[in-house]
């Protein structure tokens, strides 16, 4: 009796010892990301929150606490930050409708059992693997004053003299949007193709028997069947486009006159070593912008989450 109890106690302590040992070993395996989470993610975020209440440019003697002044300036007198979001939404509004409809049409065409469809798919996806900085460089060359696009347009007689694409806001935005669509439309072709494979073939067959045209089939069968996936794709491209950064830095550097800065590219150009022109950036003000940006993106991500769980629940 006593012996058995001892044996039980031994095995219980053995099991709990094993449990402790597994817990310890698990913590060893996740040690680096766990330390990194607190030291290199959470602490830096708290740091930006703290300094957003200061006038601070890296020089200790010029540092002082100013409460909400940075935020008040940002929202009431200096409208730079508003304009940045305006530009960013402008990019999204120009890019997303065009890119998604192009991708959807291509995906529909590719799913028609065309010969070489996987070849076309690989070609369309190709620009997505290239560095966005290099894409900026390529389009900067193509749309340069003496570049290929101007030369071809001249030759074809569409224009009389060269267009200085980067001299006005409208043409700069057009080039940025074009380069950005070229960069990412292939990803959306892939997403749409995945969505289309889930549409039952029988629907098309019976519609064909009823004499429906292809265009009608697209609007009455394909679109309604993929609308839920479409929402996810839409939100993915919104989040992606709002974060647009490298391509603007390389193509226009925010020019002309800072009119093509997106939120992220402005923050990079004004406050990051290697990009900024000053050695004493007004970090306090930058931190305030950074804080509001973090909140804006969290809101977008939150909206995305609400939407995507709603979509999942419907299935």
């Amino acid at each position: 009796m006593k012996l058995q109890r001892n044996a039980n106690a031994v095995s219980v302590s053995f099991i709990s010892q094993r449990k402790v040992s597994i817990a310890v070993q698990s913590y060893i395996l996740i040690a680096l990301p766990l330390i990194g989470f607190f030291v290199f993610s959470i602490y830096p975020i708290l740091w930006t929150f703290r300094w957003s209440f200061y006038s601070y440019n890296g020089i200790a003697s010029a540092t002082r606490f100013i409460g909400f002044d940075n935020f008040i300036t940002m929202f009431t007198t200096d409208f730079t930050y508003f304009k940045l979001w305006g530009n960013t939404f402008l990019f999204a509004a120009c890019k997303i409708p065009f890119e998604l409809s192009l991708a959807l049409v291509l995906a529909v065409l590719l799913s028609q059992r065309i010969r070489g469809s996987s070849f076309f798919r690989s070609i369309f996806y190709l620009p997505s693997v290239i560095s966005t900085a290099i894409i900026g460089l390529i389009f900067y060359n193509l749309f340069g004053y003496f570049g290929n696009i101007n030369a071809i347009l001249l030759k074809l007689g569409f224009i009389k003299t060269e267009i200085d694409w980067f001299a006005s806001k409208n043409t700069s935005v057009a080039v940025i949007v074009l380069a950005s669509i070229w960069n990412t439309f292939g990803i959306n072709v892939m997403y749409f193709m995945a969505a289309l494979t889930n549409v039952p073939k029988e629907l098309y067959e019976s519609a064909e028997l009823d004499g429906a045209t292809r265009i009608r089939m697209f609007f009455n069968i394909t679109l309604p069947m993929i609308i839920q996936v479409f929402q996810v794709i839409l939100l993915l491209s919104i989040v992606g486009t709002l974060g647009i950064n490298d391509i603007i830095l390389v193509l226009t550097g925010g020019g002309p006159g800072g009119q093509t800065f997106s939120v992220m590219s402005y923050l990079t150009k004004q406050f990051m070593p290697g990009f900024m022109d000053t050695s004493t950036p007004s970090l306090g003000y930058g931190c305030a912008m950074s804080v509001v940006t973090t909140i804006m993106f969290a809101i977008v991500a939150g909206l995305y989450n609400i939407f995507s769980t709603k979509i999942k629940n419907r299935y």
Binding site: Y43, P44, T48, L267, F271, S290, T293, A298
Partner: peptide
């Protein structure tokens, strides 16, 4: 953390560390 996009200024405390 995946849903947090800071404006990039969190690079300064990282430099300090």
């Amino acid at each position: 953390l995946m849903f947090i996009t800071t404006g990039g200024l969190d690079i300064y405390p990282k430099f300090k560390i």
